[in-house]
Amino acid sequence: MTGHHPGRSRRATERKGDVRERSILDTCEALLAQKGYDAMTVGDLAQGAGITRGALYFYFGSKQEVVTALVARTVEHLWERSRATAQAEEPRQAIAAAMQRTVELWNEHGLVMRTAIDLSLTVPEIGELWQHTADLFIEAITAVLERAGIQAGAKPYQAPAMARSLCWMIERTFYHASQESREELRQASATCEHIWLTSAGLIT
Rank of each mutant, 00 (worst) to 15 (best):
T2D: 15
T2S: 15
G3L: 02
P6M: 09
R10S: 10
R11T: 11
R11N: 05
R11K: 04
V19M: 09
V19L: 15
E21W: 04
S23Y: 10
S23P: 15
S23N: 13
I24V: 05
I24D: 10
I24C: 01
T27F: 03
C28Q: 14
A30W: 06
L31C: 11
Q34C: 06
Y37P: 11
D38T: 12
T41G: 08
D44N: 01
A49K: 03
G50L: 04
I51T: 06
T52K: 12
T52A: 09
R53F: 01
G54P: 00
L56D: 01
F60T: 09
F60D: 05
G61H: 05
S62T: 00
K63I: 00
Q64E: 13
Q64M: 06
E65H: 09
V66W: 00
V66H: 02
V66F: 00
V67R: 00
V67P: 01
T68L: 02
L70A: 07
L70P: 05
T74M: 02
T74I: 01
V75S: 02
E76L: 08
H77Q: 15
S82A: 10
T85L: 08
Q87M: 13
Q87F: 07
E89M: 11
E90W: 07
A96S: 14
M99T: 14
R101N: 11
T102P: 13
V103G: 12
E104S: 04
L105Y: 02
L105R: 09
N107V: 06
N107W: 10
L111Q: 14
R114A: 04
T115V: 04
A116E: 03
A116G: 06
D118G: 01
D118Q: 00
L119I: 03
L119V: 06
L121N: 11
I126D: 03
G127Q: 06
Q131A: 05
A134H: 07
L136A: 12
L136Y: 04
I138E: 09
E139V: 10
I141Y: 08
I141S: 03
A143T: 12
V144A: 07
L145Y: 09
A152T: 14
A152H: 07
G153M: 04
A154Y: 05
K155Q: 11
Y157E: 12
P160C: 04
M162T: 14
M162R: 06
R164S: 15
L166C: 10
C167R: 08
W168T: 13
T173Q: 15
T173I: 11
F174Y: 13
A177W: 02
A177R: 03
A177N: 03
A177F: 04
S178Q: 02
S181F: 11
S181E: 07
A188H: 02
A188K: 05
A190C: 14
E193L: 04
T198W: 15
G201S: 02
G201R: 06
T204I: 11
T204A: 15
